[in-house]
Design a binder for these strands. Structure first.
Lengths: 252, 252
DNA sequence: ACTCCCGCCTCCCGCTGCGTGAGGGTCAAG
DNA sequence: CTTGACCCTCACGCAGCGGGAGGCGGGAGT
């Protein structure tokens, strides 16, 4: 059972050119040629082509497909599993975008016109346009940054207002603690530091103790962040820094 | 507030080269240049870039994005809705592939080794390799073909056996009817023709009366299909053809 | 005022995965 | 022995950038 390019092309729903291409790059060489130079594909070639098409559908680059197919001791089950994961990931990403779009539609319907500033107004003093670039430099490319960007896009106006309220509540309690004269490395301060960490984790990204202390250092090192906390209460940046460090140390 | 390429690039998580490219093709021209020729982007440019990135994420080609963004009276809500649909479609497709992969994994786990022949063995005499190409020529590219291909991939071995059983049951009853001497355009024959159509619809694709009569004609025109029905009972191809036509006429 | 170095500029070539001819041989049917 | 449908091999083109060469600009430090 030998097939010509045209037959194979029609059967596999690809163009002849594609088969030529696969031949050129060595991805799918026909098992033989006629005396006139015509490509002859056999059943095994068809099987291989089916696999190729399948992987292609999944978005694999041709080179990678070649590696997969030509790896003799590659575990097919592992491949399937891997593909499954990749697909699930892609589905997840697409679904996130869908919800983002739904949000946007909701906003339009209500005439809310969710401008970028509006989306970030909950950040208070932190003007996103002013600091976005810096944020990118500091955290760009990290998982944490990706997460927070992603979530920011999904939150509704109410969500963000709720977040703001929670932050303010925490801030009031923190100021009260400072006013009470409690030490920055005392149990209450550490508890509030921990709460601060969890607020970040809840709303934005998984904030490890390492990341948290990094943030703490920034609060005293970067004047803009310092200013934000200092307006809540003078001395707060340094106090919070100490509390976060104390908390991180005690937990590890 | 003017930004340089580098700043914009970092903020938007794209490369400088990409911004150059967008400038070149006119997709995003910076609002101005400095005396030295440096590109200067303002807030509006950033907004536009955000939209561009968004549409790009969704897989739109740049040209189309330009059309969308430059269409002054384009309804943004309509766009969102359209994107939503596209995304939903994509998710659906990916999910189908996931289930297909899951099936394949199940089969591997049980050591079943679902070879192509096995997958199609329920087709009986119809050797897929022998007819796949023809099928493509006849139906390739049609919605019906796509549907049946898609479903075939999702069916489990049990599903396919069930389908086979249902077909055989229908076949037996059809043969019995012929044996009884009932006319091919009588009510019983038409009822069984209708059932035939519904079996196809249930298992493979939406089989309209038009498609159904097309199939009927093929049963008498194509010797391979003729042979399939003739082995069930001599004269069955022609009888079934008549019954299907009678049924289609009476229903329209 | 001078020097650095980083960032900006404009070419321009390269990559993937083919599409789409051009120009020419081949094969089966009539 | 011709037709028409295939087949062959170049070979260029396209999107959407990546990446580098070669050269200017600018602001921070000395």
């Amino acid at each position: 059972m030998a097939y010509t390019v045209g037959q194979v092309a029609r059967a596999a729903r690809v163009t002849v050119r594609t088969l030529h291409h696969y031949d050129e790059i060595g991805l799918l060489r026909p098992s033989g040629r006629t005396s006139a130079g015509y490509r002859r594909y056999d059943e095994a070639d068809l099987d291989r082509l089916q696999l190729i098409r399948y992987y292609r559908e999944l978005g694999f680059p041709l080179e990678e497909i070649a590696e997969i197919l030509d790896d003799p001791d590659a575990d097919p089950v592992a491949h399937l599993r891997r593909q499954h994961e990749l697909l699930s990931g892609r589905i997840g990403k697409l679904q996130e975008m869908v919800t983002a779009i739904e949000h946007a539609m909701e906003a339009r319907k209500l005439g809310i016109q969710l401008t970028p500033e509006e989306r970030f107004e909950v950040f208070g003093n932190f003007d996103p346009d002013e600091h976005a670039e810096e944020a990118e430099q500091r955290w760009g490319g990290t998982e944490a940054y990706r997460q927070s960007q992603e979530r920011a896009g999904r939150y509704s106006k109410e969500d963000l207002l709720r977040n703001k309220a929670e932050n303010e509540d925490w801030g009031r309690r923190f100021v009260a603690l400072m006013d009470s004269g409690a030490p920055a490395d005392g149990p209450e301060a550490m508890a509030l530091a921990e709460e601060h960490r969890q607020l970040i984790t809840k709303w934005w990204y998984d904030c490890s103790y390492e990341i948290h202390t990094g943030l703490a250092d920034m609060y005293v090192a970067d004047p803009r962040f310092t200013a934000h906390y200092e307006t809540l209460r003078p001395g707060m940046a340094a106090y919070l820094n100490e509390a976060i460090h104390a908390n991180a140390i005690s937990r590890s």
